[in-house]
Simulated scan of single mutants.
Amino acid sequence: MRVEGLALALRPRSPSEACDLGAALVRAHAASIWRCYAPLLVAVTVLALCTIETYGWLPALIIFWLKPWLDRSLLFVLSRAVFGEATHWRDLWQARRLVLGGQWLRTLLWRRFSPWRAFTQPVEQLEAQRGSARRKRVRLLMNDHRGAAAGLQTAFTHAEAAITYGLVALVWWFAPEGQRSSVWDWFFHPSAHATGELGMNLAMTAAYTAVVLFLEPFYVAAGFAMYLNRRVALEAWDIEQEFRGAFA
């Protein structure tokens, strides 16, 4: 990365402060993030819904499994945002081979359940590290930060589940008072109702997609900010930035 071009004020931060920085980055560049991420997620959701009549739980599973691949587009946008650059869909499309292509097996198999994937993803995507060089780089970055990175993953996993079930529960909360028992039965015995299991599966998939659309950018940004914070500690980026500003 070009330290002199960063639009962020760098300084050593705690992991929680770094996550706050990631959230601020999302808020500042919300337009770039969602105009690139939303079309991609919608396309994946539409394709996933083609399987809903075969197995009702499969669309949500497909979206869940492909999140690390979708996250690559978010990291691309965020890596430009730290330099103050806006990103449009055409920018993502022009870089699609670099951003969305390659590393499929590693991304979707043994690294899918990595407890710190948001923290280590920039090593492969932005630094282009491979093999033993990547392993050494990850070990260096993860030193004394495994707990914080795993805690980030755990926090967002629980938030994702809570918000998803909260959205589905809104159907019960907003139902007319006399109809709440039937809504409750629909949750647990969907085949006995007119909408059937298909309606329940569509509701669950729609709720989960909405949560991923909203929450995933914050998760990726928090991990990316923790990565940047670690680079600051290892490579004294904050000092370099101060010197460059002083002698510009």
Rank of each mutant, 00 (worst) to 15 (best):
I163A: 15
E197M: 10
V99K: 00
L198G: 10
A23C: 06
A95K: 01
A225H: 05
W116P: 00
E242F: 01
R97H: 05
F64G: 14
A236T: 08
E160C: 10
V26T: 04
R146E: 08
G101H: 05
M200S: 10
R35L: 09
L108N: 12
T195S: 10
R72H: 08
P12Q: 15
W173F: 14
R146K: 14
A18I: 05
L213D: 04
L100D: 08
V26D: 07
E4M: 08
S73Y: 02
F119H: 10
V211W: 11
H145Y: 14
F247Q: 10
A150E: 01
W65G: 05
L141W: 07
V211M: 09
A31G: 04
L10D: 10
T51E: 05
V44N: 06
C36I: 07
W57E: 15
F218W: 12
Q241G: 06
A210Y: 03
S73H: 06
L98Q: 13
V232W: 10
W65V: 14
V26H: 06
L75P: 03
L98I: 01
G147K: 06
N143C: 03
R106L: 09
L74G: 07
A38G: 02
L167M: 13
V26R: 04
A169S: 15
E85S: 04
A31D: 02
V168F: 14
I62S: 01
T154A: 15
F174Q: 12
A222H: 06
A28M: 00
M200I: 08
P39S: 07
T195D: 04
T107S: 05
H193T: 15
E235L: 10
L75S: 09
G223D: 03
L70N: 07
A194R: 15
F113D: 13
E216H: 14
F156W: 11
I239S: 07
C50N: 06
P217G: 08
A225V: 06
A162W: 02
G101K: 03
I239A: 13
L92P: 00
A162E: 00
K67Y: 06
D91N: 12
G196W: 11
A161T: 09
R80Q: 13
E124C: 04
F218I: 03
A159Q: 11
E235R: 05
R35E: 09
A150G: 05
G166A: 07
F64S: 15
R146A: 14
K67G: 02
L215P: 01
W65K: 00
V212K: 03
V168C: 14
A149F: 06
A225N: 03
A9D: 15
L92F: 00
W34L: 12
R80A: 13
L61C: 07
Y55N: 12
A236V: 01
T157S: 15
F187E: 00
Q94I: 02
L234T: 04
G5H: 05
R135Y: 02
P15Y: 12
R2I: 11
G101W: 09
M142F: 01
